[in-house]
Design a protein around this nucleic acid. Sequence first.
DNA 1: ATGAAAGCGCTAACAG
DNA 2: CTGTTAGCGCTTTCAT
Lengths: 337, 337
Amino acid sequence: MTNIKEVASIAGVSISTVSRVLNGRNVVNEETRKKVLEAVQKTNYQPNLVAQNLKMGRSNTICMMVPSIANPIFSEIVKGFEDTAQRNGFIVVLCNTDEDPKREIDYLEKMKARWIDGFVVCSKIGEAKYINDLREEGYPLVLINRYEETDIGVIDTVSVDNFRSAYDAVKYLIRTGHKRIGFAQGREQLYLYRERYRGYCQALLDHGMEVDQSLIMYESYGTDCFYHMTKTLMSRPEPPDAIFASSDPKAFVIMHALHDMGLRIPEDVSVLGFDNVNLASMMEPPLSGVSQPLYEMGTVAAQSLIYQISYKETHGELPAPVRNLLRSDLVIRRSTK
Amino acid sequence: MTNIKEVASIAGVSISTVSRVLNGRNVVNEETRKKVLEAVQKTNYQPNLVAQNLKMGRSNTICMMVPSIANPIFSEIVKGFEDTAQRNGFIVVLCNTDEDPKREIDYLEKMKARWIDGFVVCSKIGEAKYINDLREEGYPLVLINRYEETDIGVIDTVSVDNFRSAYDAVKYLIRTGHKRIGFAQGREQLYLYRERYRGYCQALLDHGMEVDQSLIMYESYGTDCFYHMTKTLMSRPEPPDAIFASSDPKAFVIMHALHDMGLRIPEDVSVLGFDNVNLASMMEPPLSGVSQPLYEMGTVAAQSLIYQISYKETHGELPAPVRNLLRSDLVIRRSTK
DNA sequence: ATGAAAGCGCTAACAG
DNA sequence: CTGTTAGCGCTTTCAT
């Protein structure tokens, strides 16, 4: 790897001149500029970014923290994130946390020691003060999907309106004649699931229906637990005529259980998902549900973060936090009647 | 962020002493060691990795290049890769290439300028000399899945035996009574697909069957093209009684098309996939097929790369390339009769 | 407009 | 065993 010194000596100028023409925010004589550029060409010189980072105190690197990249929800978000980060000259470091706080903390320390420019985290659970602290320490930070109500207006967030989305979905189910609507609830530590649940209940109530706890499945361990729960739920004397799953992975295992029981979707029971992951349309029957703009969420998070980074650069402090509420749609395919 | 100088002054020693106790490969008086550690504790000091990198000429960072992280095949590989890289103290930079050579080249340049320690690429197509050059330039490099026959023994690779896997899968189909076995072929620029095709043909031939080109679908644009191709294939006077898809995403769209035609799987036609992506077992019916150890492929690639990195560190040159051939299984679920 | 020199934070000779 | 010093490659005052 050739360095700036070499280029300087070839061009017959000092290293500062080389630096100046490359950074382009200083006036340089046209003649010398030419000479330098020539030398750069000839040597195929690329400035050493490590040295640059050390000098400048920033790394053009951002960190993306997800529970697991193998989960399609996150892999689609990350795709959007990485695409726009890259387009803006940033590289992204991927961190799978497996929802292990220790691992998160370790990672955060390592990242700080590398002068990372900012963090996007999709894996916040509960308080997780060490995450919120990031912003207080001056790091640009954005939370996707998993954040607490108390984070709103305090930290940048991106998500859909989970209450509204769930409400509309259930309203649709009611309007299309469903009388007994079940619900597959996710972990209640997560605000987003509490909101989806609230939307489910409110829609029922607003349409003169009751919230029947015997129709609600609560996640105990992993997503797989819904397999058995669905089987027992559907074996009750009065099974539901629709099940609204609070996420697509849950909807997938629910459909799987239903098929294994020989039940027909949607004739025997409708199924509605939440996410609209790529494969949702490939299921049999193709899954209806709330569609989150996953790719776009990644994009917006990247923009939000990059804005914070450049704002901080010029103003010396972080801009006011913004809440990015994205639009969700209800897409009806064939798993609902 | 506190730095080494500060720690030194608090401990009342020189910065080199601090460096020595922290790196631990020099003998230091127990007394002073204590003092330093105390100062480190008190200040919560973390060595600046950017400075360390600049000094040492390495970054403890490795680059993972995939066509698209939104593709479950790659997201599962990346999960395995990231897990083991992290466990070994490396961070991983994720690069989605969208199979755009320009984007790959740009990325590579940027990575080199950061003194990246090594590359894992899952996105090599055809020659792609600029990828192979990496190894010649002295960079540790491993290729997962997508490599050419000519790369074997020249660059580290990890994959399953694609010929054998496909051969065995088709043999199974024949043994279970299928007479007209169709095939969904992937892009023939990729050696791995040529091998799977070869395995398909060879199995047919070895069992006294002919390779009937009218039963073979060739990918034209993206995976979606198999939707229409499946429909026309199944509308022929003598449709196949089984379809072997050269990858799970293809199998998914094929099943989708079959369902839309009202055909039953496996009663009317069996479907066999290749990959055994997480969701394969969630399909209706659950998909049979060749199972690649995706997570493990990521793991092995990480180990292979890390070995190269440390070997190079001590020997000044890369070790001989190794071909990692992983074991694949045939998992039979309910999409085959 | 250009060069010399300081310094980002660290490691590793080299002295002592 | 410990301190001093010279860089790693770059940017940026400060002179000229």
